[in-house]
């Protein structure tokens, strides 16, 4: 198992109100699997992604990433797990403004201690892989939404992580561009990268091989995707 959670609980307290965003989630994802997570708004999908992305800490329960329990890790150790094992793709792309595509993609490599010349070479190669070899120096505001999301995917992959976490990656894209992005993810999955994707659309979930449904912070269904695209 590349990702495994056990009885994961996240409780938020806001203004005297207690919300169980996650209420005992136990899931295992095997190496290379392509998983889609679905569920109504507020069902805890993003909360779950943030936990396994080591961006936030659970109230209780355990998380293993590539066989390593991340519960007891320090901030800096978690940063290293994010850098080496995980790649993130966000709904809003989250590219740095006024920073070229190449430099955006090279960002994780800065924190991996890679030399300037190698950073550049790897970032350019990664951009070529997602079909942006001719947009290397474009700033985010000089790229279409789909292109920006492809830059973000290149950034997520540049450190060669084993897990890609994508929270509604097509949420801000039209259906045609969404298909392009999903094709790229499918290709990555075939290369052995484990992908966990959150989506509201059945069409998008259909690209995955396994589908998990959340409701009120719990898993209510977990089954293989039948009519896979």
């Amino acid at each position: 198992m590349i990702v495994r959670t056990h009885e994961l609980v996240k409780v938020y307290e806001t203004g005297g109100e207690t919300v169980h965003a996650l209420d005992g989630v136990s899931i295992g994802v095997s190496q290379g699997q392509f998983v889609a997570i679905m569920g109504a708004s507020g069902s805890g999908k993003s909360t779950f992604m943030n936990m396994i992305g080591c961006l936030d800490v659970p109230t209780s329960g355990s998380i293993e990433i590539a066989g390593r329990d991340v519960a007891g890790l320090s901030r800096d150790e978690l940063a290293e797990v994010r850098n080496r094992q995980l790649g993130f793709v966000f709904q809003q792309f989250n590219l740095l403004k006024r920073t070229s595509a190449t430099q955006n993609v090279a960002l994780p490599l800065i924190y991996a201690g890679v030399s300037v010349s190698e950073r550049r070479a790897r970032a350019e190669a990664q951009l070529a892989d997602v079909g942006l070899g001719d947009r290397l120096q474009n700033m985010p505001n000089q790229l279409s939404g789909g292109q920006q999301q492809r830059v973000a995917i290149a950034r997520a992959l540049v450190t060669r992580p084993s897990i890609l976490l994508a929270d509604e990656p097509t949420g801000a894209l039209d259906s045609k561009t969404s298909v392009e992005v999903m094709k790229i993810l499918q290709g990555l999955s075939e290369k052995g990268i484990s992908i966990i994707l959150v989506t509201h659309e059945d069409d998008i979930a259909a690209y995955a091989e396994r589908r998990i449904d959340f409701r009120d912070g719990r898993v209510i269904a977990d089954e293989p995707v039948r009519n896979r695209r």
Partner: peptide, 15 residues
């Protein structure tokens, strides 16, 4: 947000 992103891609406290 930029700080959050940098942290997400691996920036440590000292970075």
């Amino acid at each position: 947000r930029e700080i959050g992103l940098r942290m997400a891609v691996g920036a440590r406290t000292r970075d």
